[in-house]
Design a protein around this nucleic acid. Structure first.
Lengths: 181, 181
DNA sequence: GAGGCCATGTAATGAGTTACATGATTAT
DNA sequence: ATAATCATGTAACTCATTACATGGCCTC
């Protein structure tokens, strides 16, 4: 049920084709918020069109169709954003791994955490650049949607790095880690 | 495909019944890592049993069956943990909302962020207590799995709060926010 | 003995992935 | 011309949720 709102939201920021949306889900937003494949996107665009929530605003080469939300679609999106979020139900394989680390031997767990730490710092740096680019392009302000998203990523990767760093030390100093007999 | 590893991991930390696992998915781990309903858990436990990856170690009242991983199951889990994580594909409705905030009027977006900020601080405080309890119970060390998970939550809620705080200010200072005509 | 929670299961439906399939345009 | 990428769609399958269904145990 969230996919439709993800699509409405992305289209509201920037009218796009199914192909464009597929790319946008594969990077950025797809890493922390939501992701979908083209085989799910195209049928959903069809449904949204049939329900009058989006419309084709432009057609281009290779059968390309650019969609944008209709006023009804914007209302739908607003209603969802202002409604109560239903918590829970998160799915993140990457985080799941970290939660299950205690099934490894301490040295192995430390090695995994080292990898995590490197990865988190890398991503953080990457997003820092992206954010700078967004700011530069938009002029002065930074509260535009690409900026918000990049900044969110920066904060969460920094948190991940800090945690990994702490966890590494905690495991090393915990003789009971791994509860192996 | 991740569900089976989530189950193996949870059972490795603490042998449990399907009912117990359902509860564990509903709180803690279910908020950031993975979640599942009992109707998915029971059939998966059956499959894992048939494949010899877990076994019933105890039966109790009301048909209660306590499962634990077999050596083969532990190997399976280890293999997955040490393998390469396939990135992307995260799903988090809560974060999705935040990404789509620019479809609201500035004042509305700020109100949502205020709610987010309160929520994040609340959760952080709650986990801080939980962590303290985990440390107290386990004796001195803090690297045991409940401690790791709680600590992860603390870091990510703190990051969320920091971001929400920043985003609030950024939106207020951005005249182009909401790109409404 | 009644109400609540513990405990397990199945069926129907919906969401999401992988694989199959096709063709137009662009750059080299 | 040929390879890469753009662009859309469908089919088969697996994963996940909601709803249906049943019964035992425990407390009051």
């Amino acid at each position: 049920m969230s996919l439709r709102f993800a699509l409405l939201g992305l289209l509201d920021v920037q009218p796009s084709s199914g192909y464009d949306l597929t790319q946008r889900f594969a990077r950025g937003i797809g890493s922390y918020a939501w992701s979908a494949k083209h085989s799910q996107i195209y049928p959903e665009l069809r449904k949204l069109t049939d329900e009058g929530l989006i419309e084709i605003t432009e057609t281009g080469a290779r059968g390309r169709k650019t969609y944008a939300p209709t006023p009804a679609g914007r209302e739908e999106l607003r209603g969802w954003l202002l409604g109560k979020p239903n918590a829970g139900g998160a799915r993140n394989e990457f985080v799941l791994r970290l939660f299950l680390l205690s099934s490894l031997e301490p040295e192995e767990a430390v090695a995994v955490l080292d990898g995590t730490l490197r990865f988190a710092r890398e991503q953080e740096a990457l997003l820092e650049q992206e954010f700078a680019a967004a700011v530069a392009e938009a002029g002065v302000p930074s509260g535009s949607s690409p900026g918000l998203a990049a900044r969110y990523g920066i904060h969460s990767y920094r948190a991940l790095a800090e945690w990994a760093d702490w966890a590494r030390a905690a495991i090393a100093g915990d003789p009971t880690f791994g509860h192996r007999r």
